[in-house]
C-alpha cells in the first residue's frame, strides 16, 4: 500500500507501468489473485474496459468484492480461452438484449466450457458475467441454463434446479387449467 507522502508521483509511475503491462490482476472476494489478458478483459467486459480506460486498475490486484474465487477463475479462464480463439465479428456484435439482436449460438469451445461446470458454479458465473458486463459470457451461460429447462415438465425442472414448489394446491391448479395445453406430458 502507498503512503500519502509522494502518492501523486507513485500514482503516475504506477499508471505508466500499467500501460506497459499486457495483463491485469484481479482479486476475488476471498483474496485470490488472477492474471488476465488486458486486451481480452477490455474486449469482453464493459466494466473492466471502463476500469482500464479510467486507470482504476490496481497492479496489486483490482478488488472485485462481489465475485468469489471459483467464479473469477472461470471468468479469467473464459477470457484467456476467448483471447486464443479467433474472434468473429458476429461474436463481438452479439448482444443480450432479448428483442433487438438475435442470440448467436455458442461455439463448440464455449459449449464445452459451460458443460463442465456444476450448477452452483454455472449460476455464480452468470452473476459474475452480469456484474462485469460480459455480454457474450452472459449469453453463453444463460443459453446453457435455458437448455437445461427444455422439454421438461415443471416437476422435472424443479428437480434439476433443486427448486421447491412454493405454490398452494389451489394456485397450482389454476395455473394448470390456464395453461393446460403446455402440460400434456405431466
Amino acid at each position: 500500500m502507498e503512503v500519502d507522502k509522494g502518492k501523486g508521483e507513485a500514482e503516475e509511475t504506477r499508471k505508466v507501468a500499467e500501460a506497459d503491462r499486457d495483463t491485469v490482476t484481479l482479486k476475488s472476494s476471498d483474496g485470490k489473485l488472477f492474471e488476465v489478458s488486458k486486451e481480452a478483459a477490455a474486449r469482453l467486459s464493459t466494466v473492466l474496459a471502463g476500469m482500464i480506460a479510467g486507470g482504476s486498475i490496481d497492479d496489486n490486484g483490482t478488488d472485485l468484492k462481489q465475485i468469489g474465487s471459483e467464479a473469477l477463475e472461470n471468468v479469467v479462464d473464459y477470457c484467456n480461452k476467448h483471447a486464443n480463439s479467433i474472434p468473429s465479428a458476429a461474436l463481438i456484435s452479439s448482444s443480450i438484449s432479448f428483442n433487438t439482436a438475435p442470440f448467436k449460438e455458442p461455439e463448440e469451445w464455449e459449449r464445452k466450457f459451460v458443460d463442465r461446470l456444476s450448477h452452483d458454479a454455472l449460476f455464480d458465473l452468470v452473476e459474475a458475467a452480469n456484474f462485469l458486463g460480459m455480454e457474450r459470457l452472459l449469453d453463453v451461460t444463460c443459453h446453457k441454463i435455458s437448455e437445461m429447462m427444455k422439454g421438461k415438465s415443471p416437476d422435472q425442472i424443479r428437480e434439476v434446479f433443486n427448486i421447491k414448489n412454493d405454490y398452494t394446491k389451489e394456485e397450482l391448479e389454476e395455473i394448470r387449467q390456464e395453461l393446460a395445453w403446455a402440460f400434456y406430458d405431466d
Binding site: C142, H143, I163, K164, N165, R176
Partner: peptide, 22 residues
Amino acid sequence: IMMEIFSLLEIPDLVRAGSVCS
C-alpha cells in the same frame, strides 16, 4: 437474468418454466 434465460425458450418450454415457482 431469469428473463434473459426465459427469452431463449420456445413458448411451450417457457410456459412450463414459468410455472415452476412464484
